[in-house]
Amino acid sequence: MNDQLAQIMAQSQAFVMLGFVVFLRVGAAMALLPAFGETMVPVRVRLFLGFAFTVIVTPAVANTVTPSVEQLGSPIYLMSEPIVGLGFGIILRLAIMTLQIAGSIAAQSTSLAQLMGGNNSDPQPAIGHVLTISGLALAAMLGLHVRIVEGFILSYQVFPVGALPDPLGFSDWGITHVAHSFGFAFALAAPFVIVSLLYNVALGVINRAMPQLMVAFVGAPAITAGGLILLALTTPVLLPIWQRAFEALLLNPFGGW
């Protein structure tokens, strides 16, 4: 009886240590994950979600992590696992920031940045806020939780436990996704930029032809109405484009590594 109890205690201790190692990576990523790591989500809820993801991921990576659990006392775990988790969270967060950047570009181009500024935890123009909330809803509908779990499991194949990531490869991976995020955001906001350019060129021509006309008073309502109409027309097109790109990212989050 005592031998069986000792064996159960040893297995329980090993599982707790294994869960702690996994939580170091999962908990760090939870601070940045889309939908689950939003500032509007209470801290206690995020902590519970971190434990839930840990319980799901731990059995799947037990064979990968178990041989190294005995070295848990090494400080390398306290450095490598949070770094990998933060990197994974940042890559997925960049997909949401793409919508925020696109909304900011669109708002600045159509003079709606100050007129329709959003008063929320992450100050941004209302266009960016609408696109961001819509993107988060689409991501949740795509089974985001399942894809995140798959990403955590895949991360243990790309970044082994107990080893710091290669600095050059890790930085190149991040820079690649940051550059793609900004380029994709500008592509999404391109219709607003083009309309803004045409509007300013037309306004300049009218001002040269009729200097006595106060073109600013005439053009301000026009660009405001045009921006709102363009937003209503392009949002059903832009969001599916972003959705397909986000699905591709979830299927291969370590593509630039």
Rank of each mutant, 00 (worst) to 15 (best):
G204A: 14
L99T: 01
T224P: 00
A163H: 11
T224I: 15
I105N: 07
M97S: 12
Q212S: 08
A31M: 04
P191M: 15
H145V: 08
L24S: 06
G183M: 05
A31Y: 04
I101Y: 07
L203E: 12
L250M: 14
L86F: 08
V22A: 14
G227N: 13
Y156R: 10
I8W: 09
G50F: 09
A189D: 10
L188T: 03
V65E: 05
V201A: 06
G204K: 11
Q100M: 14
L231A: 10
S109Y: 05
T132P: 03
L92M: 10
G162P: 10
V45Q: 14
I90F: 05
F217N: 13
P160G: 04
A232N: 14
S104I: 06
G89K: 00
S121A: 14
F184M: 13
I8P: 01
L197P: 07
A137D: 04
S155F: 11
I127Y: 03
L251H: 10
A245N: 05
T110E: 09
G19D: 05
G219T: 06
L142H: 03
L188K: 05
A179K: 05
I194T: 09
S171L: 05
G27M: 06
V55D: 04
A245S: 09
A95L: 15
A95K: 09
P42F: 01
N63V: 11
I101W: 10
L144S: 04
Q13G: 13
F254I: 10
A31H: 07
A95R: 09
Q4G: 06
S155K: 03
Q124K: 15
I91E: 02
A106D: 11
A232K: 01
L47A: 07
I223T: 15
L5R: 12
L188C: 11
V26Y: 02
A185F: 06
A14T: 10
G128E: 07
T176N: 05
E70I: 13
P191H: 07
W242Q: 05
G128P: 06
Q4W: 07
P82D: 07
A6I: 13
A10N: 04
F88G: 00
T176W: 07
T235S: 12
N207E: 03
V43S: 14
L78Q: 03
A140V: 12
A185G: 14
S80W: 02
S134L: 07
D166N: 02
L203K: 13
V84G: 12
V161Q: 10
A232V: 13
Q7P: 01
F88S: 08
L168M: 05
G204V: 11
F159M: 07
F48P: 03
F217M: 12
L94F: 10
Q4D: 11
L24W: 04
G183F: 00
